[in-house]
C-alpha cells in the first residue's frame, strides 16, 4: 500500500464527516460534565484551596508555643525584596555561660512579598512555611506588616 495515496472525492467527504463527528463528540461530552466555575463568595464554606497554595508566611509552633527559629537570618538575606526583617537579642545561658543569639521579633511585610518561597527554601530548620489563607485584603497597608513569632 502506497503511503501518499491520493484520496478520492467521496473518501474525503466521509473522512471529513468522521473528523467533524469526533469533534462534536468531544464538545458534547464537555456539555454534560460538571462545570468548573467556582462561585467564590457564596461557596466559602465548601471552598477547597490547594495545600501548596502560597498565601501567607507563618511560623509553625509546637504544643508549648515554641517556634523553631534560630535567628540565623538566612531567610532575611534570601528575600529578594526585603520583605522579612529580623531583630535579635543575645541571651547568656545560665549553665554554660555561653552567649547565644535568639529571635526577638520576626517582621514579615505581606504587602511586598512575591510568594517566591526562597525564604522557606533557605531556612535550615523549617521554621517558616506558607499557608493557604488567601483572604488577605485589609484597609490599611500597616495591617499587612505581620509579626510572625509570638
Amino acid at each position: 500500500m502506497k503511503r501518499n495515496r491520493k484520496k478520492t472525492y467521496v473518501g474525503t467527504v466521509f473522512q471529513a464527516i468522521h473528523s467533524l463527528l469526533t469533534g462534536l463528540k468531544v464538545t458534547m461530552k464537555e456539555f454534560f460534565t460538571p462545570k468548573v466555575t467556582e462561585q467564590y463568595p457564596e461557596n466559602r464554606s465548601t471552598l477547597q484551596i490547594s495545600e501548596r497554595h502560597r498565601a501567607q508566611l507563618y511560623m509553625p509552633t509546637d504544643e508549648e508555643g515554641n517556634n523553631r527559629c534560630i535567628a540565623c537570618g538566612l531567610c532575611q538575606s534570601a528575600c529578594p525584596n526585603g520583605t522579612i526583617s529580623i531583630t535579635t537579642t543575645t541571651v547568656t545561658d545560665s549553665e554554660t555561660g555561653k552567649s547565644r543569639k535568639v529571635l526577638a521579633e520576626y517582621h514579615y511585610d505581606l504587602g511586598s512579598c512575591t510568594f517566591c518561597q526562597l525564604c522557606v527554601n533557605a531556612c535550615p530548620k523549617e521554621a517558616i512555611k506558607f499557608n493557604n489563607k488567601f483572604e488577605n485584603a485589609v484597609f490599611d497597608r500597616s495591617n499587612l506588616i505581620l509579626k510572625l513569632n509570638k
Binding site: 464538545t27 464537555e30 456539555f31 460534565t33 462545570k35 468548573v36 466555575t37 462561585q39
Partner: peptide, 10 residues
C-alpha cells in the same frame, strides 16, 4: 458556557 465547562452569567 456549558460547552466550555463554565456556568455563564450568574
Amino acid at each position: 458556557a456549558a460547552f466550555q465547562c463554565r456556568l455563564g452569567p450568574m
